[in-house]
């Protein structure tokens, strides 16, 4: 099967540099508003700074996939003398907590790396963080090219062109939810 090049986007989090200001949450929620930048609401952000100030715990977490099943998440990790709650590391939008759930619709939120047209140089959270907590990298990876993927891609691209990426993602998430329900 033929190989195709794919851009993989990653963000490295240097949590030691985080000062807990949450500018990333502000920027994220503003960017994802419709119309763009019309509102600020950190509860709608797809990044969240986990903060326990006196415990010296400050680190941002990105919204990952929705999961239908909640978990207890009661375990903890001690790293470098600091005790972290397992739940705080988790990126999932899940039924056991409010994190990464849209406060109005209850729909899951997910980081989309600020995909937009024209594309941004880097996601908004990275751009606003001048303390270099968030380090953005793009690298090319070779992936196997498959016919079916390509046809799905064309279809999805058409949908994105017509409705915009956010609309499509949200629809897919809704479908996913209703299927699981």
């Amino acid at each position: 099967m033929a190989k195709m090049k794919k851009i993989v986007k990653t963000i490295t989090v240097d949590a030691d540099r985080c000062n807990g200001c949450r500018a990333c949450e502000v920027a994220c929620s503003a960017f994802h508003a419709t119309p763009k930048y019309s509102i600020v609401n950190p509860a709608r952000s797809r990044i969240k700074v986990i903060t326990y100030r006196l415990d010296d715990i400050f680190f941002p977490i990105f919204a990952g996939a929705y999961t239908k099943a909640g978990c207890e998440g009661r375990d903890s990790y001690i790293i470098d003398g600091k005790e972290y709650r397992e739940c705080d590391f988790c990126r999932a939008s899940c039924p056991t907590r409010n994190r990464f759930t849209d406060p109005d619709s209850g729909l899951p939120l997910r980081c989309d790396m600020c995909e937009s047209d024209p594309p941004l140089e880097k996601p908004k959270c990275v751009e606003v963080c001048i303390n270099d907590v968030l380090i953005y990298e793009e690298r090319e990876e070779e992936v196997e090219e498959g016919e079916p993927i390509e046809s799905i891609e064309i279809g999805v691209k058409a949908l994105v062109d017509k409705h915009g990426l956010n609309e499509v993602i949200e629809t897919v998430e809704r479908v996913q939810l209703s299927k699981k329900a």
Binding site: A30, A33, Y37, S38, N41, A43, P103, I130
Partner: peptide, 24 residues
């Protein structure tokens, strides 16, 4: 709180922010 704060002219506001950030 988990509600919205509305910005009247968001795009324009962010342009001012861009300048401010450069300055800082």
């Amino acid at each position: 709180g988990t509600k919205d704060v509305n910005i009247a002219r968001g795009e324009e506001f962010m342009q001012h922010m861009e300048e401010l950030k450069k300055f800082v």
